[in-house]
Design a binder for these strands. Structure first.
Lengths: 118, 118
DNA sequence: TATAGTAGTTACCCTAAGGTAAGTGGTTAC
DNA sequence: GTAACCACTTACCTTAGGGTAACTACTATA
Protein backbone atom coordinates (compact mmCIF):
# COMPACT_ATOMS: atom_id res chain seq x y z
CA UNK A 1 0.00 0.00 0.00
CA UNK A 2 1.30 3.42 -0.93
CA UNK A 3 0.63 6.56 1.04
CA UNK A 4 -0.45 9.60 -0.87
CA UNK A 5 0.83 13.11 -0.13
CA UNK A 6 -2.30 14.11 1.71
CA UNK A 7 -2.04 11.18 4.11
CA UNK A 8 1.62 11.87 4.74
CA UNK A 9 0.94 15.55 5.41
CA UNK A 10 -1.79 14.60 7.83
CA UNK A 11 0.47 12.17 9.69
CA UNK A 12 3.15 14.85 10.00
CA UNK A 13 0.60 17.27 11.40
CA UNK A 14 -0.69 14.79 13.93
CA UNK A 15 2.85 13.99 14.98
CA UNK A 16 3.67 17.68 15.50
CA UNK A 17 0.52 18.07 17.57
CA UNK A 18 1.35 15.05 19.70
CA UNK A 19 4.85 16.45 20.25
CA UNK A 20 3.43 19.71 21.55
CA UNK A 21 0.85 18.05 23.73
CA UNK A 22 3.46 15.76 25.23
CA UNK A 23 5.49 18.77 26.30
CA UNK A 24 2.66 20.91 27.67
CA UNK A 25 0.38 18.22 29.00
CA UNK A 26 -0.21 17.67 32.66
CA UNK A 27 -1.28 19.89 35.46
CA UNK A 28 1.97 21.64 36.24
CA UNK A 29 4.23 22.15 33.21
CA UNK A 30 2.62 25.28 31.81
CA UNK A 31 2.36 26.91 35.23
CA UNK A 32 6.07 26.22 35.73
CA UNK A 33 6.99 27.68 32.33
CA UNK A 34 4.81 30.73 32.96
CA UNK A 35 6.38 31.25 36.37
CA UNK A 36 9.79 31.24 34.67
CA UNK A 37 8.73 33.83 32.08
CA UNK A 38 8.80 36.29 35.00
CA UNK A 39 12.50 35.56 35.51
CA UNK A 40 14.86 32.84 36.68
CA UNK A 41 13.77 31.16 39.85
CA UNK A 42 14.98 28.74 42.47
CA UNK A 43 13.26 25.55 43.57
CA UNK A 44 11.82 27.09 46.70
CA UNK A 45 10.61 30.17 44.86
CA UNK A 46 8.77 28.04 42.31
CA UNK A 47 7.23 26.04 45.12
CA UNK A 48 5.97 29.22 46.73
CA UNK A 49 4.77 30.79 43.44
CA UNK A 50 2.91 27.75 42.17
CA UNK A 51 0.40 27.24 44.92
CA UNK A 52 -0.39 23.63 45.84
CA UNK A 53 2.44 21.95 43.95
CA UNK A 54 4.27 19.33 45.99
CA UNK A 55 8.09 19.06 45.95
CA UNK A 56 7.71 15.65 44.31
CA UNK A 57 5.67 16.96 41.38
CA UNK A 58 7.83 20.09 41.02
CA UNK A 59 11.01 18.04 40.92
CA UNK A 60 9.50 15.53 38.50
CA UNK A 61 8.15 18.14 36.10
CA UNK A 62 11.31 20.25 36.21
CA UNK A 63 13.26 17.14 35.16
CA UNK A 64 10.87 16.49 32.27
CA UNK A 65 11.08 20.10 31.09
CA UNK A 66 14.86 19.96 31.31
CA UNK A 67 14.95 16.78 29.25
CA UNK A 68 12.80 18.48 26.63
CA UNK A 69 15.25 21.42 26.59
CA UNK A 70 12.59 23.87 27.70
CA UNK A 71 14.43 24.90 30.86
CA UNK A 72 17.96 24.83 32.22
CA UNK A 73 19.10 23.89 35.69
CA UNK A 74 22.09 25.79 37.02
CA UNK A 75 23.82 24.70 40.19
CA UNK A 76 25.69 27.40 42.10
CA UNK A 77 28.35 25.95 44.33
CA UNK A 78 27.63 28.34 47.15
CA UNK A 79 26.88 27.59 50.78
CA UNK A 80 24.13 26.61 51.15
CA UNK A 81 23.80 25.14 47.69
CA UNK A 82 21.65 27.17 45.30
CA UNK A 83 19.89 25.97 42.16
CA UNK A 84 18.44 28.24 39.52
CA UNK A 85 15.99 27.34 36.79
CA UNK A 86 15.61 29.39 33.63
CA UNK A 87 13.99 29.17 30.20
CA UNK A 88 16.07 28.11 27.22
CA UNK A 89 15.54 29.77 23.80
CA UNK A 90 13.24 26.84 23.03
CA UNK A 91 11.31 27.57 26.22
CA UNK A 92 11.08 31.24 25.28
CA UNK A 93 9.76 30.21 21.85
CA UNK A 94 6.62 28.90 23.54
CA UNK A 95 5.42 32.46 24.08
CA UNK A 96 3.00 32.61 21.12
CA UNK A 97 1.69 29.14 21.89
CA UNK A 98 1.04 30.05 25.50
CA UNK A 99 -0.66 33.27 24.38
CA UNK A 100 -2.99 31.33 22.10
CA UNK A 101 -3.82 28.83 24.82
CA UNK A 102 -4.59 31.74 27.09
CA UNK A 103 -6.61 33.62 24.47
CA UNK A 104 -8.73 30.69 23.49
CA UNK A 105 -9.36 29.74 27.11
CA UNK A 106 -10.61 33.25 27.78
CA UNK A 107 -12.76 33.22 24.65
CA UNK A 108 -14.14 29.79 25.57
CA UNK A 109 -15.16 30.91 29.03
CA UNK A 110 -16.87 34.03 27.66
CA UNK A 111 -18.81 32.01 25.08
CA UNK A 112 -19.91 29.40 27.57
CA UNK A 113 -20.98 31.91 30.19
CA UNK A 114 -22.67 34.06 27.55
CA UNK A 115 -24.73 31.20 26.18
CA UNK A 116 -25.71 29.82 29.56
CA UNK A 117 -27.94 32.82 30.32
CA UNK A 118 -29.37 33.98 26.97
CA UNK B 1 -5.47 38.21 53.47
CA UNK B 2 -6.12 40.44 50.45
CA UNK B 3 -5.17 39.50 46.92
CA UNK B 4 -3.37 42.10 44.90
CA UNK B 5 -4.11 42.78 41.23
CA UNK B 6 -1.08 40.87 40.03
CA UNK B 7 -2.11 37.72 41.91
CA UNK B 8 -5.65 37.96 40.60
CA UNK B 9 -4.45 38.42 37.01
CA UNK B 10 -2.22 35.41 37.39
CA UNK B 11 -5.07 33.27 38.73
CA UNK B 12 -7.26 34.31 35.80
CA UNK B 13 -4.51 33.35 33.38
CA UNK B 14 -3.99 29.97 34.95
CA UNK B 15 -7.74 29.36 34.90
CA UNK B 16 -7.94 30.21 31.18
CA UNK B 17 -5.03 27.87 30.49
CA UNK B 18 -6.63 25.07 32.47
CA UNK B 19 -9.87 25.63 30.54
CA UNK B 20 -8.09 25.21 27.22
CA UNK B 21 -6.12 22.18 28.34
CA UNK B 22 -9.26 20.52 29.64
CA UNK B 23 -10.83 20.86 26.19
CA UNK B 24 -7.85 19.79 24.09
CA UNK B 25 -6.26 17.27 26.43
CA UNK B 26 -6.21 13.59 25.73
CA UNK B 27 -5.10 11.53 22.83
CA UNK B 28 -8.07 11.95 20.50
CA UNK B 29 -9.83 15.31 20.82
CA UNK B 30 -7.55 17.35 18.59
CA UNK B 31 -7.40 14.67 15.90
CA UNK B 32 -11.22 14.62 15.91
CA UNK B 33 -11.45 18.41 15.62
CA UNK B 34 -8.86 18.44 12.85
CA UNK B 35 -10.70 15.70 10.97
CA UNK B 36 -13.83 17.85 11.14
CA UNK B 37 -12.03 20.93 9.78
CA UNK B 38 -12.01 19.03 6.48
CA UNK B 39 -15.80 18.93 6.49
CA UNK B 40 -18.73 17.38 8.31
CA UNK B 41 -18.33 13.68 8.90
CA UNK B 42 -20.25 10.66 10.09
CA UNK B 43 -19.26 8.31 12.87
CA UNK B 44 -17.94 5.64 10.55
CA UNK B 45 -15.99 8.16 8.47
CA UNK B 46 -14.29 9.53 11.57
CA UNK B 47 -13.44 6.03 12.67
CA UNK B 48 -11.82 5.35 9.30
CA UNK B 49 -10.02 8.70 9.15
CA UNK B 50 -8.60 8.57 12.65
CA UNK B 51 -6.54 5.44 12.49
CA UNK B 52 -6.50 3.28 15.64
CA UNK B 53 -9.35 4.96 17.48
CA UNK B 54 -11.84 2.51 18.96
CA UNK B 55 -15.60 3.11 18.72
CA UNK B 56 -15.66 3.45 22.50
CA UNK B 57 -13.11 6.26 22.58
CA UNK B 58 -14.61 7.98 19.55
CA UNK B 59 -18.07 7.97 21.06
CA UNK B 60 -16.76 9.13 24.43
CA UNK B 61 -14.70 11.99 23.02
CA UNK B 62 -17.43 13.12 20.64
CA UNK B 63 -19.76 13.43 23.63
CA UNK B 64 -17.19 15.47 25.54
CA UNK B 65 -16.63 17.78 22.57
CA UNK B 66 -20.36 18.19 22.15
CA UNK B 67 -20.78 19.08 25.83
CA UNK B 68 -18.06 21.69 25.43
CA UNK B 69 -19.94 23.10 22.41
CA UNK B 70 -17.03 22.42 20.07
CA UNK B 71 -19.01 20.14 17.78
CA UNK B 72 -22.65 19.46 16.93
CA UNK B 73 -24.32 16.11 16.47
CA UNK B 74 -27.08 16.01 13.87
CA UNK B 75 -29.34 13.01 13.56
CA UNK B 76 -30.93 12.46 10.15
CA UNK B 77 -34.05 10.37 10.47
CA UNK B 78 -33.30 8.39 7.36
CA UNK B 79 -33.10 4.64 6.89
CA UNK B 80 -30.63 3.50 7.95
CA UNK B 81 -30.16 6.19 10.56
CA UNK B 82 -27.40 8.69 9.74
CA UNK B 83 -25.49 10.89 12.17
CA UNK B 84 -23.36 13.83 11.16
CA UNK B 85 -20.81 15.67 13.25
CA UNK B 86 -19.71 19.23 12.50
CA UNK B 87 -17.77 22.05 14.09
CA UNK B 88 -19.63 24.85 15.85
CA UNK B 89 -18.43 28.47 15.56
CA UNK B 90 -16.61 27.83 18.85
CA UNK B 91 -14.97 24.79 17.30
CA UNK B 92 -13.98 26.82 14.26
CA UNK B 93 -12.48 29.46 16.58
CA UNK B 94 -9.82 26.91 17.59
CA UNK B 95 -8.09 27.36 14.25
CA UNK B 96 -5.35 29.74 15.45
CA UNK B 97 -4.77 27.67 18.56
CA UNK B 98 -4.41 24.49 16.51
CA UNK B 99 -2.06 26.29 14.14
CA UNK B 100 0.16 27.37 17.02
CA UNK B 101 0.19 23.88 18.50
CA UNK B 102 1.17 22.57 15.09
CA UNK B 103 3.80 25.27 14.50
CA UNK B 104 5.48 24.85 17.82
CA UNK B 105 5.48 21.07 17.53
CA UNK B 106 7.24 21.38 14.18
CA UNK B 107 9.72 23.90 15.56
CA UNK B 108 10.35 21.69 18.59
CA UNK B 109 11.11 18.67 16.46
CA UNK B 110 13.47 20.67 14.24
CA UNK B 111 15.35 22.07 17.24
CA UNK B 112 15.69 18.72 18.94
CA UNK B 113 16.87 16.95 15.79
CA UNK B 114 19.18 19.84 14.91
CA UNK B 115 20.89 19.81 18.29
CA UNK B 116 21.27 16.05 18.39
CA UNK B 117 23.81 16.08 15.54
CA UNK B 118 25.72 19.40 15.76
C1' DT C 1 21.09 21.82 70.83
C1' DA C 2 16.90 22.62 68.51
C1' DT C 3 14.73 24.96 64.57
C1' DA C 4 14.40 26.44 59.99
C1' DG C 5 15.84 26.80 55.35
C1' DT C 6 18.41 24.86 51.13
C1' DA C 7 16.85 21.11 47.35
C1' DG C 8 15.13 17.55 46.76
C1' DT C 9 13.88 11.74 47.28
C1' DT C 10 11.19 7.66 48.52
C1' DA C 11 7.30 4.69 49.47
C1' DC C 12 2.66 4.13 49.15
C1' DC C 13 -1.98 4.95 47.51
C1' DC C 14 -6.00 6.25 44.61
C1' DT C 15 -8.25 7.78 40.48
C1' DA C 16 -8.65 8.69 35.68
C1' DA C 17 -7.36 7.64 31.04
C1' DG C 18 -7.25 4.55 27.70
C1' DG C 19 -7.23 -0.18 25.53
C1' DT C 20 -9.69 -4.86 24.26
C1' DA C 21 -13.33 -7.57 23.09
C1' DA C 22 -17.77 -8.56 22.65
C1' DG C 23 -22.62 -7.29 22.27
C1' DT C 24 -26.90 -4.31 20.75
C1' DG C 25 -30.68 -3.03 17.64
C1' DG C 26 -31.80 -1.62 13.49
C1' DT C 27 -31.45 -2.03 7.95
C1' DT C 28 -30.13 -3.56 3.57
C1' DA C 29 -28.06 -6.49 0.04
C1' DC C 30 -27.07 -11.30 -1.60
C1' DG D 1 -31.41 -16.45 6.27
C1' DT D 2 -27.13 -14.73 6.87
C1' DA D 3 -23.65 -11.52 6.24
C1' DA D 4 -22.51 -6.78 6.46
C1' DC D 5 -23.05 -1.93 7.37
C1' DC D 6 -24.85 1.85 10.61
C1' DA D 7 -23.88 3.93 15.23
C1' DC D 8 -22.87 2.89 19.07
C1' DT D 9 -22.69 0.50 24.35
C1' DT D 10 -20.99 -2.47 28.01
C1' DA D 11 -17.82 -4.99 30.92
C1' DC D 12 -13.36 -5.70 32.11
C1' DC D 13 -8.48 -4.73 32.60
C1' DT D 14 -3.95 -2.22 32.67
C1' DT D 15 -1.27 1.79 32.94
C1' DA D 16 -0.17 6.50 33.88
C1' DG D 17 -0.89 10.72 36.47
C1' DG D 18 -1.04 12.74 40.48
C1' DG D 19 -1.53 13.18 45.70
C1' DT D 20 0.28 12.49 50.76
C1' DA D 21 3.55 11.97 54.09
C1' DA D 22 7.74 11.13 55.69
C1' DC D 23 12.64 11.19 55.07
C1' DT D 24 17.58 12.71 53.42
C1' DA D 25 21.76 15.64 53.75
C1' DC D 26 23.64 19.82 54.38
C1' DT D 27 23.98 24.75 56.59
C1' DA D 28 22.82 28.76 59.24
C1' DT D 29 20.82 30.89 63.13
C1' DA D 30 18.96 31.52 67.96
Amino acid sequence: MYMNQKDELCLNKLRAIRDTLEVIQGKWRIPIVIALTFGNKRFGELQRDIVDISPKMLSQELKALEMNRIITRTLYDSMPVAVEYSLTPLGLSMRKLLDEILNWGTHFREEILENRQP
